[in-house]
Amino acid sequence: MGPLIEVVLGGLMAGVLYSLVALGFVLIYKASGVFNFAQGAMVLFAALAFARFSEKMPMPVAFVLAMGVMVLMAWLVERLVLRSLVNQEGIILFLATFGITYFIEGLGQLIFGSDIYPIDLGLPKEPKIILEDTFQGGILINIDDLLAAAVAGALVLSLALFFQKTGTGRALRAVADDHQAAQSVGIPLNRIWVIVWSVSGFVALVAGIVWGSKLGVQFSLALVALKAIPVVILGGFTSVPGAIVGGLIIGVGEKLAEVYLGPIIGGGLENWFAYGLALVFLMVRPEGLFGERHIDRV
């Protein structure tokens, strides 16, 4: 029983980390109908900015500065890209975010360098053993994983409150529902987009710091996005809770597959297993677990 619980717990922790990135996708899709492929590049960029700033100054200052950079980026993206592509089809906007991805990846490494930069949050790295009396050998957990889970939880809670309780949140939901209708009742579309890209920049920064403190800040951080994509399609593009539940399912599924299926059909499963799992779920519910059901009319 002990090892199984350990695997499941490990999976849940990994899942929370995926959810952190997936949240960024969901936010932008919800508010502007754009599937933002650049989320991974934003994670990289934010983490690079934070890592390099924190070499020179205390962490809170670095955090605020990095956030400033992300807001600036959000503004530029709205100004230079989205504004010119209003009313284009989803696929065109999707591909434009590929352009943004390449641009940000190049820019980030050009400004901040392309080595591996550590982020040290001063947390204990050694895993702790708990429940030693219940199971033989106990269960290993990492403190920083627990912290990441707490951060993700807090983030989701505050985002949910922001979306449901504030005026801006209501405006965001209106824009997500219908651009033109929102505009006609006087919601400033452009400002909403800047806000939502800034919020997802904030999510990217948090995700970047959490991932960066685990892996070190390096180019491969941008590839985390590819891990988060199955989470988003599994949970549904439009659902914040979906991103969390999806992340947990994918995290646990991946770890279980690696431990129990890996030895049978060969290792290295984790790259495609998540996609396979998401596909199976999609066959049953094509809009993802919590996505909005979509009705076709002729």
């Binding site: 230079l80 434009a96 352009g99 943004i100 390449y102 641009f103 990846e105 190049g106 490494q109 392309s114």
Partner: peptide
């Protein structure tokens, strides 16, 4: 890195 940036910018430009 510059190549990445220009490539990305050109894609956006064309779109």
């Amino acid at each position: 890195h510059l190549e990445f940036m220009i490539f990305g910018a050109l894609i956006i430009f064309f779109l």
